[in-house]
Design a protein around this nucleic acid. Structure first.
Lengths: 400, 400
DNA sequence: CACGTCATGTCAATCGTTTTCGATAACGTT
DNA sequence: AACGTTATCGAAAACGATTGACATGACGTG
């Protein structure tokens, strides 16, 4: 009996049903239930619910303990007068529950505001329904990826856990490996790593890499077609009539830089333009280095009529150099970048570039990971095309 | 059998024999061997077998399924010949374990590569050690916050889970409420909400808000001193000698916009400059509206000599309007913004502004939440000062 | 010698959920 | 009437870690 009184739900339902029966209410189960629900809902308004919980628990001083006592599957079972197994079956849509019972349980679930505890079910199924995303740092590049990933994850059963590896005090080498070993197997079911610079360690969970910069042979990767994008950009300049096209390189230790240079050379090759070593200058995707490169390029005895910069930052730097030198863009010099960062659209003149479909890349990475999590094999890396975004910094070369 | 013995023996023999001896097993060699074999076979259950193999590094045959079978506390206990309770005590540094046992258990833990399952312990302690951050969308503003939050969280026991609420198909009203109810109490121990536009619902977990835009009376918030920052910006212009200072407002439904206008007015007041209604134009923090506002401002019979825009986007828009009108900045018109977004530093000329210390704000939010999680009371909202970043768009007004 | 103390470890219950397996009753079939 | 079939539901065992209560033995003390 004491157990009965331990719980308010029990008291309520017992009494209600008892009363109904005693008063000659020979009704079906559903009717009894309707009355029960009415009673319960009258008592279980948000204000009183709190009070009830607090009273049932240990702490009458409820000020500091705002919400002890989640509604568990047991509470639902008790109120609905079924076993927890049945409730679980209803929640998970398993076979073998009478329609009438299903609706009743659903009603109680709504009434009580029950939500399944991810922790408990994670433990039972030994999977957490969380996927992790590892970035070196939260920077603009990662931003749209996050949006894409987050949007694609919505509607699945998975949640997103974000890690920035670079900020660790131990320095930022091999953050991928460290984070992955800490998380894998205990906290996340799978991981997406953004711009890893080292080979991904094989971990205990599926991993897909976005824009990997190390070995080209990883199986599960998503990236933009760097070479093709560079080709597109260069081709765009060639189509406009340019013959002398300079290039500002990217960071030498990153794969993407090499691929972009390769695409640039391929476009020149294909157009039968002979390659001039002088027209390529080193850069590192950063503003200052690109500024120097642009200056050297424009100081050439026969300067290029167009510049393909390996990324937008470099292109914007080149743009500034040109305007400092009094060169009219695009009339006297065409400039095209790579990435389509937000600032590209707002420069004056607006920068022509090729766009990395970051949102889609994030989305694809999720799809790939989801497939992996279901045991499917993903064989080939996924490459998305870079699309040309012609704006105001590219035009036909000056007639000379 | 011999192969099994060879491999496993190297790993386990020391411990096992030591254990057998310690536990007073005064048996003959053969008996020791029998016991050893028994222990080994117990250890070599399907779950653990794989890991042992991996540790031995001899059998790449099963390399494709690395994830099966985590090492649990039971495995450790079995190998170390103690109970799971003892292992738990060792892991958590509880009192009551003999030094010798401690080292032994630690040795086994390293041997087996055991890591405690956050899921299981979360369930027992009914806390997950995960804090959630809710943003409407991953945008530049949230970026530095994320970095600050992530950096501060590192070194604590907490992990970061990120949610973008805005991308939901149901439209983006009240995402804060929905997300919070779904997560609170089941998945996260506390939450940080970025730029909530509605009153935060009291949830089952502690919540702190960054840059709240609704009611000003929320207890746990972190934001920049909007009013003070606007005051600083305006004062900067006044100190330079400006008397006729225009203002482009922010989004009318956001608190920050009003506070910034208030700071602007306060600075004028204090300097004894009479307030001119014509000099304030509506904006909404966006480019297009700000462009219109700037145009109207500059089309005035007596145009302002300086403009304080409620955010950097608006200021940059004003900058473009000015240059389109052939107005030299800062010689003929001074412009100052608010926020110090990355683009502000790269405009030409570089935009003067007041900086929101986003990194610090994120950091403070974490500290506050951590305090809340330990049951401490946080009484007053935390405001961080905005710092003046004078660059190239502000100067003394033209002599006229 | 009986007793208390202390150090060390083990037992068993617990958290909330899922799932297997068996129980029960209703029903149709010979 | 005896039997097999379904349909429906509940009891109980996991999942892995934590913890308070209890067991054991060694030791010192009155």
């Amino acid at each position: 009996m004491s157990i009965v009184f331990d719980n308010v739900f029990e008291i309520l339902s017992e009494n209600v049903i008892e009363n109904l029966l005693i008063t000659g209410h020979k009704s079906t189960n559903t009717t009894v239930f309707a009355d029960l629900c009415a009673t319960v809902s009258r008592v279980m308004t948000p204000e009183t619910q709190h009070h009830v919980n607090a009273t049932a628990g240990q702490f009458p001083t409820s000020a500091e303990k705002p919400a002890e006592g989640r509604v568990t599957i047991n509470d639902v079972a008790r109120v609905a007068k079924v076993s927890v197994s049945t409730v679980s079956k209803v929640v998970n849509g398993r076979y073998g529950v009478a329609p009438r019972t299903i609706t009743r349980v659903h009603q109680v679930i709504n009434e009580l505001g029950y939500e399944t505890s991810l922790v408990a079910s994670s433990m039972r199924n030994s999977q957490t329904n969380i996927i992790g995303i590892l970035v070196a740092e939260f920077e603009p590049f990662a931003l749209e990826l996050l949006n894409g990933i987050s949007a694609t994850l919505r509607g699945t059963k998975y949640d997103l856990m974000a890690y920035a590896g670079n900020l660790s005090p131990e320095g930022h080498v091999g953050w991928e490996r460290r984070s992955l070993s800490r998380l894998g197997g205990t906290l996340i079911d799978g991981a997406i790593i953004v711009t890893p610079t080292v080979e991904i360690p094989h971990s205990s969970v599926p991993v897909v890499a976005i824009d990997p910069q190390a070995g080209t042979d990883m199986p599960n990767t998503v990236d933009v077609d760097n070479s093709g994008g560079a080709y597109t950009a260069t081709k765009h300049l060639i189509d406009l009539g340019h013959q002398r096209i300079g290039h500002i390189r990217g960071r030498d230790d990153l794969n993407s830089a090499h691929l972009r240079e390769e695409g640039y050379r391929r476009a020149l090759d294909e157009a039968g333009i002979k390659f001039d070593e002088q027209l390529i200058h080193a850069g590192d995707y950063q503003w200052d280095t690109a500024t120097q490169a642009a200056e050297q390029l424009l100081a050439l005895p026969v300067p290029p009529t167009a510049i393909f910069a390996a990324n937008d930052i470099s292109a914007l730097a080149a743009l500034e150099v040109a305007s400092a030198r009094g060169l009219a863009v695009p009339q006297e010099l065409s400039i095209i970048g790579f990435d389509d960062i937000p600032a590209a659209a707002q420069s004056a003149p607006a920068l022509s570039t090729v766009r990395q479909p970051l949102h889609e890349m994030g989305s694809h990475a999720v799809s790939m990971l989801l497939a992996l999590l279901q045991g499917e094999e993903v064989t080939e890396p996924h490459q998305l095309p870079a699309v040309l975004v012609p704006r105001d910094t590219t035009a036909a070369p000056p007639q000379s």
